Amino acid sequence: MVRHIFKPEERIGWASQLPQVQDEWDGLLQTLSGHTNWVWSVAFSPDGKTLASASSDDSVRLWDAVTEAVLNTLRGHTDTVNSVAYSPDSKMLASASTDDTVRLWDPATGALLNIFDIGHYPIALHFSKDGRYITG
């Protein structure tokens, strides 16, 4: 598609030094399958080895970013999970849901650490740089 779009410029001459690339390619590296509904948020762990995904199937899944394997499925929310965020030290994972709760998980074990009923749901979660606060 990109080659087709810029074909007229190739004839003009400014694009005469084209890079050598495959004839057929796309940007897809991996497809992670497992959720049964929409995925609203993803977050890589700070070391880049694990990916967390938040879904309308009321769950959070943890994936091995290299092998694509599901490492854990975190359940407990009673409605769409719309955001996930790792703490800077990777020891906690926060998830926010339209059930008006934020849950803290231990991503290494999948254990639920705490539940905060906040009376509304944040669209996006973020840990502070020191990992002591969550904003959303």
Rank of each mutant, 00 (worst) to 15 (best):
M1G: 12
F6K: 04
K7V: 06
P8W: 10
P8C: 11
E9V: 03
E10V: 14
R11C: 01
G13W: 02
G13P: 03
W14P: 00
S16C: 03
Q20D: 13
V21R: 11
V21A: 09
Q22S: 12
Q22A: 13
D23Y: 02
W25P: 00
G27F: 10
L28M: 08
T31K: 09
T31C: 03
L32T: 05
T36V: 04
N37S: 14
S41V: 08
V42G: 05
A43M: 13
F44C: 03
F44I: 03
P46Q: 13
L51Y: 02
L51H: 03
L51K: 03
A52R: 04
A52Q: 10
S53P: 09
S53T: 13
S55N: 13
S55V: 10
S56V: 02
D57M: 12
S59N: 15
L62C: 04
L62N: 04
D64G: 03
E68V: 01
T73Y: 05
L74F: 12
L74N: 11
L74R: 15
L74A: 14
R75N: 15
G76D: 06
T78Y: 04
V81Q: 09
V81D: 09
V81T: 10
S83Y: 11
V84Y: 13
A85F: 15
S87Q: 13
S87T: 10
P88W: 12
D89F: 11
S90P: 01
K91M: 13
L93I: 13
A96T: 09
T101F: 02
T101K: 11
V102K: 09
V102Q: 06
R103T: 05
L104S: 11
W105L: 07
D106V: 01
D106G: 05
P107D: 05
A111V: 00
A111M: 08
L112G: 06
L113Y: 01
N114S: 15
I115L: 01
I115N: 10
F116Y: 15
G119F: 05
P122A: 01
I123T: 14
H126Y: 10
H126L: 14
F127Y: 15
K129E: 15
D130L: 09
G131Y: 04
R132F: 04
R132Q: 15
Y133T: 03
I134Q: 12
